[in-house]
């Protein structure tokens, strides 16, 4: 369970989040929508304790993580699996070494053969096993996201997935494949939070939508409410959907 309690966050003199409060259960499928620079990625970074709020509290499974040290946060972060925008893969390593990165860090006793079979298994889950020996620059955008998902699965047995713009910059086919993969992985009561500005993809995967505008939550509700919401910015987002349907 994630709880944001009156969270404020500034970036220098620029106010990013203003008095944000919401809660998300670990089995919920949530999308945070909003324009660029509205603080969507900041929300994910706050959940993981990568940045600290200027005021307010953040609770993860009932624990206040606001003042936790880097070492204490390590345990909190094990609850999540995150895929950053564009994958954030290590471009000096190949696909295998990227996925094996955490396994090498956490499990020093794992043999090379065990490691190889674990990496192959994870790559099979995300459908890019054939790319195991490729370098990152040789992968398409969609493949990079898949490898990033495989790598995040290697890190821990997450209770919840966090995705930062998982379909941005992808063609519709690849975007659709990523959406399907996100839904597949969210089985077994494992929820997710996606931050995106692509409402078309968001509607495919999420049940709950939070809309950010000027650092504030202006909407929090389900699909039906979102489609009917009488908020100008949401209507603008919906125009993308109308455009796609009309085509």
């Amino acid at each position: 369970m994630i709880i944001f309690d009156n969270v404020w966050f500034n970036y220098g003199s620029h106010q990013i989040l203003k008095d944000i409060s919401f809660s998300v259960n670990s089995n919920e499928r949530v999308t945070v929508l909003g324009g660029s620079g509205e603080g969507k990625t900041t929300i994910l970074r706050l959940i993981l304790g990568l940045v600290k709020p200027d005021s307010g509290k953040i609770f993860i499974n009932g624990e206040d993580i606001t003042d936790k040290t880097e070492d204490e946060l390590r345990q909190v972060r094990m609850n999540f699996s995150i895929v950053f925008q564009e994958g954030a893969l290590f471009d000096s390593l190949n696909v295998k070494e990227n996925v094996a990165f955490c396994l090498r860090e956490y499990n020093k006793t794992m043999s090379e053969d065990e490691l190889d079979s674990k990496v192959r298994e994870l790559l099979r889950i995300v459908g890019v096993e054939d790319a195991i020996e490729l370098m990152i620059e040789e992968l398409s955008g969609g493949m990079q996201r898949r490898v990033a998902i495989a790598r995040s699965l290697a890190a821990s047995e997450p209770k919840m997935f966090l995705y930062d713009e998982p379909t941005s910059g992808l063609d519709p086919i690849n975007a659709d494949n990523i959406c399907k993969l996100i839904l597949e992985l969210s089985q077994k009561e494992r929820g997710f939070i996606i931050v995106t500005h692509k409402v078309f993809d968001a509607l495919k995967v999420a049940d709950r939508f939070i809309f950010l505008k000027d650092g504030e939550v202006v909407f929090d509700g389900n699909k039906e409410k979102l489609v009917k919401a009488d908020i100008p910015d949401i209507k603008l987002f919906m125009e993308e959907l109308d455009f796609k349907i009309s085509i």
Binding site: L50, I82, D164
Partner: peptide, 9 residues
């Protein structure tokens, strides 16, 4: 976000 990734791991 590669440094963030390291921290998360």
């Amino acid at each position: 976000h590669q440094v963030d990734t390291l921290r998360v791991f």
